[in-house]
């Protein structure tokens, strides 16, 4: 969880650059993690033969480690575009919830600023902003938290892609699977932090693994997500203690 250094009790509310800097400081541990993940992601891209500039551009434009890592194994010939689009949306659905949650922070700003700020909405920036209790310009704080994470994410990606040229090809061949490790971790982290029930996603994973043996991956993902979502809805609608 992000932590904020205390301010003197008589200090004025932070605004502008000072608020953005406070956001970057509050989010520093997550930003550091992003740099590390960026190194792995950049190296994994290089292992697939993807150009360094394109890898960096993907981190800049997508800015979602879960989506980027998960989709790397799908960059095949022919490209399963529908599976990538559907899976990206489904994995990004938590951004919908965070976007809804962060709406009051955006309210006082003009539309161009809001639309630009949404580009840096990630788990870390959202968590740091929601947790912030000091008197601070929360919009600038949010942009500082998300922006600093983005800078380190892109820097890590670029450095990882460049350093990959020095690495053993056999080692590089292993790196794309780090995307799965990242996704496993993210799943466990979200389950723990949001106190999600394990059964729906466990069933979804099993259904997808089985369904992928007989239907295309995009269909398997859709079936599994429908089963997982339906199960979660059914459990939520059940009387207490019923399931």
């Amino acid at each position: 969880m992000p932590t904020s250094p205390p301010l003197p009790s008589d200090s004025a509310p932070l605004t502008g650059f000072a608020a953005a800097r406070a956001g970057a400081i509050a989010c520093r541990s997550i930003s550091a993690s992003s740099f590390f993940f960026g190194l792995l992601y950049g190296a994994a891209c290089a292992a697939l033969g993807i150009a360094t500039g394109l890898a960096a551009l993907s981190s800049l434009l997508v800015f979602s480690g879960a989506v980027q890592f998960a989709m790397l194994p799908l960059v095949q010939d022919p490209l399963p575009a529908a599976a990538i689009a559907i899976s990206s949306v489904l994995i990004s659905t938590r951004l919908v919830l965070m976007g809804a949650s962060i709406a009051p922070v955006m309210a006082p700003r003009p539309w161009p600023a809001r639309l630009g700020a949404l580009a840096v909405l990630t788990d870390g920036a959202w968590a740091a902003t929601i947790a912030e209790r000091r008197p601070v310009d929360r919009f600038a704080f949010f942009v500082g938290a998300g922006g600093s994470t983005l800078v380190l994410w892109v820097a890590g990606t670029t450095l990882g892609a460049l350093l990959a040229a020095l690495a053993d090809p056999a080692l590089l061949a292993r790196l794309p699977f780090t995307g799965m490790l990242f996704l496993v971790l993210l799943l466990l982290m979200v389950t723990r932090a949001a106190r999600l029930a394990v059964l729906p996603w466990l069933i979804a994973g099993a259904v997808s693994a089985l369904a992928a043996q007989v239907v295309a991956l995009e269909a398997a993902v859709l079936i599994a997500v429908a089963v997982g979502g339906g199960l979660a809805w059914w459990r939520g609608a059940a009387p207490a203690g019923g399931r």
Binding site: L187, A194, Q213, A224, G228
Partner: peptide, 25 residues
Amino acid sequence: AVRRVLDALPASAMAAVIGPALVGA
């Protein structure tokens, strides 16, 4: 109700991507 579904979908989607990958690992 909306929050419950939004909470469940991302985890199910992640698991749906992980499942086949682990089978082939």
